[in-house]
């Protein structure tokens, strides 16, 4: 029973902590972020497994975590509000080439991030070529180019 409760507690705690730190956290997968992720998983593993390194315990913990994940996805479908709270909502960052600076700052982004996404996805060079840039709920930046640029809509994991 202890393992199941520990796994549920850690699932809820991690969900809360990663939501607290914002959308950028897991999508900026720099090498340092990758190392950070490994350290977090190591610390989490210790807290969940405790002294019990048996296969039985591992199966229990993994099953609990997967079940929590399935449960959360079902909750998100049943109650759309849950999805909004857990994952956030998409936000417009650039409209017709005009950056909405306050939103960019609050999302811990700058024009360089948007231009980077525009360059990689659309081959665009200037903000004026962007019709809409959207910070998606999953942390990617979507770019909709102005029709005159001849690009196509795409999203970029920043």
């Amino acid at each position: 029973m202890d393992s199941v409760l520990r796994a549920i507690a850690m699932f809820a705690l991690l969900l809360l902590l990663f939501r607290m730190t914002g959308r950028r956290t897991l999508h900026d997968t720099t090498p340092f972020d990758f190392v950070l992720l490994l350290i977090v998983s190591e610390a989490t593993q210790q807290a969940m497994v405790g002294e019990d390194n048996s296969i039985t315990n591992a199966v229990l913990v993994i099953s609990t975590l997967l079940l929590c994940n399935v449960g959360l996805s079902l909750l998100k479908i049943r109650f759309p509000g849950v999805g909004r709270v857990v994952e956030g909502v998409p936000t417009l960052l650039v409209v017709h080439g005009r950056p909405l600076r306050d939103r960019l700052a609050r999302a811990r982004l700058d024009e360089g991030d948007v231009l980077g996404a525009a360059r990689e996805l659309q081959g665009l060079e200037r903000l004026e070529q962007i019709r809409f840039a959207v910070l998606e709920a999953n942390g990617t930046i979507s770019i909709v180019p102005e029709p005159s640029t001849g690009g196509w809509s795409a999203s970029y994991p920043h």
């Binding site: 936000t91 417009l92 017709h96 909405l100």
Partner: peptide
């Protein structure tokens, strides 16, 4: 703060409706 123009396509207007939640 900078606001988005009101003549947005439907999908973007829906997104803007969520802005208070985002704030």
């Amino acid at each position: 703060m900078a606001e988005a123009p009101s003549d947005l396509p439907h999908a973007m207007r829906r997104m803007e409706a969520d802005l208070p939640f985002q704030h």
